[in-house]
Design a protein around this nucleic acid. Structure first.
Length: 718
DNA sequence: AAGCCCCAAA
């Protein structure tokens, strides 16, 4: 007599509370009257529970098997217990599976492989190896293709030695000829960064299916080998292999990496032609592809065309806007998502936090901070990292540090974020101290870490220490210095006033210097008033980068500072000829959660008159402390009395004056601006911080300036 | 009978 397995019966079982299942007494009360399942039904249900990761349902079946005494029949229950082990393994309950396994009077190879899966699932690779060894020792079982592919999957990063041994086992036993084993081998070599090994397996073992190709493309992409990935894609096309979902994911990722919209659109058409419906993964990677190719409107069109959207779809479109510098849109999409009752996850929070970081929208950022904690994402690394970034960019180094120290789990990005955050605030000592903590915690720094470390040395003027990191520690750790690191050294020498050394370093280091490096040197010539070297450098830079606006601004300032008006005029002329336009100066500040934006020489602000009066008042007060308008930075073809006026309407002065009007005495003022600060504003704001007794923090395009009591954290070098 | 490979959003 078999039990009815009608849907209503299943529903009744599912309605059992978890407690009633874990407590045998309750189980008796609830389902003791049910008829036992047939053997086939039990197997079937357990497989279902495993596939859908439905822990409650599977436990119910388990309980039912216990109460109906089916597990005590010794002969036949190996398969049944194997199914249970498989179910618990798939649900991430390897310990439970292990208990069942230990109590088995008789096991077979499936028992071993199912349990190994369980430990693989929860990331205990070592346990998989242990079982692999014991399997032969205890039960005298030789591996089959299932065992071998599972063990190969357990060879994660850096276990290439173990992986190679498994490869040998596969060769000796002939198991490599199984598709699953071949694919697992390809995957293993990719994970171990041995792409030669992966390609070797791909071409030396006959028979590749779409999964083989998917694995190899994904491995190649992980290591930035786009051309090789294109070759493999070509093979798929030549061999008329049918694509699956994963192929589309990989190929869209490839298009994104190449920023090849054309190819992306072709693959998009391929997708539409070849599949009726596609899952969230595919649609998200399609949106992601268009976003990364800079085609935000295409990404939006795909997103809008979706019938159903999950949190991943929302997060992807928000990330696409973020990557394309559309921060407000990112935040407004977050609100739309909330309205549709889609629950954000850790990635979503990371995206919106980074958007508010880019806007320095502190009000928004702190609300989001509270929201993440309420949603239970406090311990999530990516959220913590985004919070560090948000607080750093909003000018709150202390808050960023608090988030960092309270993080339960940290990854390399957490360390790098706090180090570079400190650097942007000019807090070199703090940055280096975190770096030492990092070394003490035996976290391996990467190339990004050293960008922070070297620039911290720059802030502190520690030339020798910087060279030690570049020439010794980095080599010792195995990191090849790149352009950014060498540029930090240029900055380091420049800041220390060693301009000739910096120039010499650039001439003798075999690096393709970019405009950033050259501007670093040029800026040093400007600050240290080395007009002659500056002119030489300018010649080189203008030849190499005739369209770089920043260089022109810097040059005209440099000429002005040296009172070389002919130079200024030349630059102006060049700019006109080459149609180079200065970006308008823009500053913004948050007042009671409202973002107020100011354009230089703003004529449209409703409270313009009051703001101008406030500025006049401030300028009068700081003039008593010795402020002299630095009219040298204004182009000399402007009438003399207009020059001062030009200066007083710089956007950051407007923003600061407005903030002083609107905030209570003593409240810190935070301003963000899109360009580099000019000399005049810098010296004016220093004195304003003194006469108003306020902390004024200005984030310009390069760094933070923290003005307090008449001085600035950049120590007048920026 | 039961078990294995490829999978996004920062």
């Amino acid at each position: 007599m078999r039990a009815a397995t009608t849907p209503s019966r299943i529903r009744a079982l599912l309605n059992l509370k978890a407690t009633s299942i874990s407590n045998p007494n309750n189980i008796n009360n609830n389902i003791v009257s049910l008829q036992p399942f047939s053997f086939e039904d039990s197997i079937h249900h357990l497989k279902n529970a495993a596939d859908t990761k439905n822990l409650i349902f599977g436990k119910t079946i388990h309980a039912h098997l216990i109460t109906s005494n089916q597990l005590s029949q010794e002969d036949d229950n190996v398969v049944l217990v194997n199914s249970l082990i498989n179910f618990y393994s798939k649900c991430g309950q390897a310990r439970v599976a292990h208990n069942l396994f230990d109590e088995m009077p008789k096991r077979n190879i499936v028992s071993w492989s199912s349990l190994m899966m369980g430990f693989l699932q929860i990331g205990c690779g070592f346990k998989v190896f242990e079982l692999f060894r014991d399997m032969g020792l205890v039960d005298g079982i030789r591996p089959n293709e299932y065992i071998l592919s599972t063990v190969l999957s357990a060879c994660c990063k850096g276990m290439v030695f173990e992986g190679q041994q498994c490869h040998c086992v596969g060769l000796k036993t002939g198991l490599v000829f199984y598709q699953y084993v071949k694919n697992a081998l390809v995957r293993m070599y990719s994970m171990c960064s041995d792409l030669g090994g992966a390609m070797g397996v791909l071409y030396s073992v006959p028979g590749s299916d779409i999964v083989t190709y998917n694995s190899i493309i994904s491995g190649l992409l992980d290591h930035g080998c786009v051309n090789e990935a294109l070759d493999v894609l070509n093979r798929i096309v030549v061999e008329y292999k049918a694509w699956d979902e994963v192929t589309y994911l990989n190929v869209f990722a490839l298009c994104a990496r190449l920023k090849d919209t054309n190819m992306g659109m072709q693959v998009h058409s391929h997708l539409v032609k070849n599949s009726e419906e596609f899952g969230f993964y595919v649609t998200s990677s399609l949106i992601d592809m268009y976003g990364k190719c800079g085609k935000i409107s295409y990404a939006r069109r795909v997103f809008d065309s979706l019938d159903t959207r999950n949190v991943g779809s929302w997060t992807t479109i928000m990330a696409a806007y973020l990557q394309n510098d559309c921060f407000e849109e990112t935040l407004s999409l977050f609100l739309d998502m909330e309205l549709e009752d889609v629950v954000p996850n850790d990635y979503t929070f990371a995206v919106v936090l980074n958007a508010s970081a880019s806007l320095s929208a502190l009000g928004y950022g702190t609300s989001l901070h509270a929201y993440t904690e309420k949603s239970g994402f406090k311990g999530h690394v990516i959220v913590g990292n985004a919070l560090i970034n948000m607080y750093s960019k909003a000018g709150f180094a202390g808050h960023a540090n608090k988030v960092f120290t309270e993080m339960i789990n940290r990854d390399i990005i957490s360390w790098n974020s706090i180090i570079s955050g400190y650097c942007h605030h000019g807090l070199g000592k703090e940055a280096l101290s975190v770096f030492n903590d990092m070394l003490a915690a035996e976290v391996k720094p990467n190339n990004i870490t050293f960008i922070g470390v070297l620039s911290a040395c720059g802030h502190l003027g520690r030339v020798q220490e910087g060279f030690y990191y570049l020439q010794q520690l980095m080599i010792q750790i195995g990191i090849k210095p790149g352009l950014e690191h060498y540029t930090c050294i240029v900055g380091l020498l420049s800041k220390a006033g060693l301009l000739n050394e910096a120039e010499n370093f650039m001439r003798t280091t075999p690096v393709d210097w970019d405009v950033v490096a050259w501007r670093t040197l040029l800026n040093a010539c400007h600050v240290h008033r080395n007009y002659d070297l500056g002119k030489q450098v300018a010649k080189i830079v203008l030849q190499m980068y005739p369209d770089d606006v920043g260089t022109y601004t810097l040059l005209s300032n440099m000429h002005a500072k040296a009172k070389r008006w002919d130079g200024v005029a030349d630059i102006r002329k060049l700019m006109r000829e080459r149609n180079i336009k200065k970006e308008p100066g823009l500053s913004w500040t948050e007042i009671r959660n409202n973002t107020c934006v100011f354009v230089s020489d703003d004529k449209s602000h409703p409270e313009l008159k009051q703001i101008h009066e406030k500025i006049k008042d401030l300028l009068n007060r700081i003039t008593l402390l010795g402020y002299v308008p630095d009219i040298a930075t204004v182009f000399h073809d402007v009438e003399a009395e207009q020059k001062e006026e030009y200066l007083s309407y710089h956007s950051e002065k407007l923003a600061i004056a407005y903030a002083l009007m609107k905030t209570p005495p003593g409240a810190p003022i935070r301003v963000i601006k899109n360009l580099r600060m000019c000399n005049d504003c810098h010296s004016a704001i220093k004195l304003i911080s003194k006469v108003t007794n306020r902390l004024i923090i200005v984030r310009d395009v390069n760094r933070f300036h923290s003005f307090q009591d008449g001085s600035c954290s950049c120590q007048d070098y920026w």
